[in-house]
């Protein structure tokens, strides 16, 4: 209950400014376009040495060149494909396993729920980066390991959310009514529970995508993720780190791309969530 004096002007609920939201949407679309149409959009081959290393932006190379003299813009465009594709795959995997498992735990209850939930608790009690580092030291740097570990870590959170939504929805009266119609568990989960869980799950997908994206970028930056000659944004930051000492800004270009995309997706997610709750 929020109260205010009868004399005081009422609080104005802040609206989201339109411009940042539009800008975020535009940037996300641009990144998506780059990822899909990289071969068409990139002005140069990302592996070609086209100029001297660490040329400043301008003069034929819009974003300058990297540590070997490759076109930065083309590598950013091709890197989008790796970074975004990998993150999308991780998110999709996490949902493909997390949602059914979470709903199953909620609907089944009993020991099956206990076993799944306690296992998830165990892995969520450990720092995600440590788990990833451990897995990578066992298998060596490998994209498959990285993808699976990141998907697993994201799936833990998706599981928790789906289970919580499922438990909450399964006790609703309309689910009782469906049970009284004699409908099976699968049908109830699909027709009664899932449609009502969709909103929160979509918002979660945005969060998980950002998590996966930053996670992959961080590991690539540490040299443990995507390996050269493949270009991804985190790896490009690492490759070009040395430019800073010569007054160059080469590593800031991919780093800024990472930050901008993460912020944009978060902003759009907040916007969507706020729109739903009528904030």
């Amino acid at each position: 209950m929020s109260l205010h004096d009868i004399t005081a002007p009422p609080l104005r609920a802040p609206g989201f400014a339109r411009l940042p939201v539009l800008a975020a949407a535009a940037f996300c679309l641009a990144c998506l376009a780059a990822a899909v149409a990289a071969p068409v959009l990139a002005p140069h081959d990302p592996a070609d040495l086209v100029a001297l290393p660490w040329q400043p932006p301008g003069d034929g190379f819009l974003l300058g060149t990297d540590q070997l003299g490759r076109d930065m813009l083309s590598r950013i465009i091709w890197g989008a494909r790796v970074s975004i594709g990998l993150s999308a795959a991780i998110t999709a995997l996490a949902f493909a396993f997390g949602v059914p498992a979470g709903l199953a735990a909620a609907v089944l209850g009993g020991w099956a729920d206990q076993a799944m939930s306690r296992t998830v608790d165990l892995f969520m009690a450990l720092p995600p980066l440590i788990l990833a580092l451990l897995a990578l030291s066992v298998t060596g740097t490998s994209l498959v390991t990285l993808t699976l570990v990141a998907a697993f870590l994201a799936a833990l959170r998706v599981f928790r959310l789906s289970r919580a939504l499922g438990v909450d929805l399964a006790t609703r009266d309309f689910v009782d009514i469906a049970r009284l119609r004699g409908e099976g568990t699968l049908r109830i989960a699909a027709c009664e529970i899932l449609p009502n869980a969709a909103g929160p799950l979509i918002a979660e997908a945005g969060l998980r995508f950002v998590f996966a994206f930053l996670f992959v970028a961080s590991l690539s930056f540490l040299g443990l993720g995507v390996q050269p000659p493949m270009a991804d944004w985190g790896g490009m930051v690492r490759e070009n780190a040395g430019a800073l000492n010569y007054g160059g800004i080469a590593p800031l270009v991919p780093a800024a791309a990472i930050a901008l995309l993460a912020i944009s997706v978060n902003l759009l997610g907040d916007r969507a969530a706020g729109g739903r709750t009528g904030r």
Partner: peptide
């Protein structure tokens, strides 16, 4: 609540007196 000189969030007194 108006008798206590209080309004709920978002409300506004537009006319009259308490």
């Amino acid at each position: 609540l108006a008798a206590l000189g209080v309004l709920r969030g978002g409300q506004r007194m537009t006319a009259g007196e308490v």
